[in-house]
């Protein structure tokens, strides 16, 4: 049976609308559950006090600090490595078997479950390099976990910069490096930043890779070598060990809100950056 184009159009539209609403509803459902259970827990005290009695009492300050440090170290290491790799792959090599192998490798790295990264970090950083369960071990492990994302998004961003910009830059007497730093990278910034944001999100929310490498100590971290517990790990332990469901939801709410704020802020800054450029 052939449908008239109009009916067909309506049916397709209805289906697509349905699929889209499911995606949005799931997101809303998660937000509502987390915020409904978590928001009542939130208070200034919750944010500014360290956990007490295994997390049953007090706040989550030390886990917030640990999360920030870990994420910061991860990006500090992964951004130059990732953007550097992307520049090398796009600007300094012609497409060959080698670049395809490098790219394939990076993609495989992206598909490895995070708990395997945890194991790798445990063996290399915690044991072999003797960093112990520490912010440093955790941060480095996270760096390698998000590296493929940063490489991939940076590569796409750099590739999308018009070839003509490079030609113009060369024709005005620039070296390759000058063309990259003065024209290509500034134009690619929005795309690169998107990759970094995705990575921040993944770092903040990661548990498996972190629990093996940064440990789960509740003390306020005092150095790069302190064992410490991130918000996500704190949530996992509170919920799994049945320590305190209310505190677990409170932690989850802070996590979700933090990610939301980071996203909104970045989009705002990007918008401003793009406006200034054009």
């Amino acid at each position: 049976m052939l449908l008239s184009p109009k009916t067909e159009q309506k049916i397709v539209q209805a289906f697509l609308y349905f699929f889209t609403s499911i995606a949005v509803l799931v997101l809303l459902f998660i937000l509502v559950v987390i915020l409904k259970n978590g928001l009542p827990q939130l208070s200034l005290e919750f944010l500014t006090k360290n956990p007490a009695d295994m997390g049953r009492e007090g706040g989550i300050l030390s886990t917030i600090v640990a999360t920030i440090f870990l994420t910061f170290i991860a990006l500090l290491v992964a951004t130059p490595l990732g953007v550097g790799t992307a520049i090398y792959l796009t600007e300094y090599t012609i497409e060959s078997r080698l670049t395809r192998i490098i790219r394939f490798g990076a993609e495989c790295l992206a598909g490895i479950p995070s708990i395997i990264f945890g194991l790798f970090g445990f063996i290399l950083f915690v044991n072999k390099l003797k960093f112990g369960w520490s912010i440093l071990s955790g941060g480095l492990t996270l760096a390698f976990m998000v590296l493929p994302t940063i490489i991939r998004t940076s590569e796409e961003a750099i590739k999308s910069v018009p070839q003509a910009y490079r030609l113009v830059s060369f024709s005005l007497g620039s070296t390759r490096w000058q063309a990259i730093t003065r024209v290509v990278l500034p134009s690619a910034v929005p795309g690169i930043v998107t990759g970094i944001i995705l990575s921040i999100g993944r770092s903040i929310g990661e548990t498996a890779a972190v629990i093996f490498t940064a440990g789960s100590a509740l003390r306020m971290p005092s150095s790069l070598f302190s064992s410490s517990r991130t918000m996500a790990v704190h949530f996992y332990i509170l919920a799994k060990e049945g320590v305190s469901m209310p505190k677990a939801y409170g932690t989850a709410a802070v996590l979700v809100i933090a990610i939301l704020i980071i996203n909104i802020m970045t989009y705002y800054l990007m918008e401003k950056y793009i406006k200034r450029k054009s």
Binding site: L167, V168, S169, S171
Partner: peptide, 19 residues
């Protein structure tokens, strides 16, 4: 690089850099 400074090139499509 010095040669390209001495010999300027204007392309078919105008390409202002994004600045």
């Amino acid at each position: 690089v010095a040669l390209r400074r001495k010999i300027g090139m204007v392309f078919a499509t105008p390409v202002p850099l994004p600045m």
